[in-house]
Amino acid sequence: MLKTLKQIASIGIVTEPAPPADESLRVRDALQEQIRSVLGRALCIRHVDAGSCNGCELEIHALNNPVYNLEGLGIRFVASPRHADMLLVTGPVSRHMVVALRRAYDATPEPKLVVALGDCGCTGGIFGESYASCGRVANVIPVDVAIPGCPPSPTRILQGILAALHTSRASAAGASETLDSPARRA
């Protein structure tokens, strides 16, 4: 126990300030105002791997490490789409995952956001469309934000998730300011 406490004390807080939202990643504007009025800054995300190579999953994991500290921003991953505000979808959508993805989408309460993550989620990537793959996520469910990269870095993912929440550059800048709370700077 003493060793554990010593380790915690010696490492201290390693969390870095959150990056600003990147509005250029947004592909659809329909819901942002409505979502923001409902959610404020809190957000629950359900991740769905619809056919990924698992590279994007590694960087989603990193979002929860103490350096990016996603939960410190009020954003967390939840176990059920019924608890989620946002679906974070990776991979080209394999034909075998179409039914499960659509069910997860239907189970997510309105208003909801969809973020397509990674080159495959944005365009189908190197796998493309085939007898086994439907290609990009937007071919199966509506997408609000598309974050390219193979895999995108945790910072890029965070910028995209924040872009989904924000309505304009001005409010994004303001929000990133408020997100950088005293606790996070400490």
Partner: peptide
């Protein structure tokens, strides 16, 4: 298994 079969070998 097989849910993320995306046709890699044919690709």
């Amino acid at each position: 298994l097989g849910y993320v079969h995306k046709g890699i070998e044919r690709r």
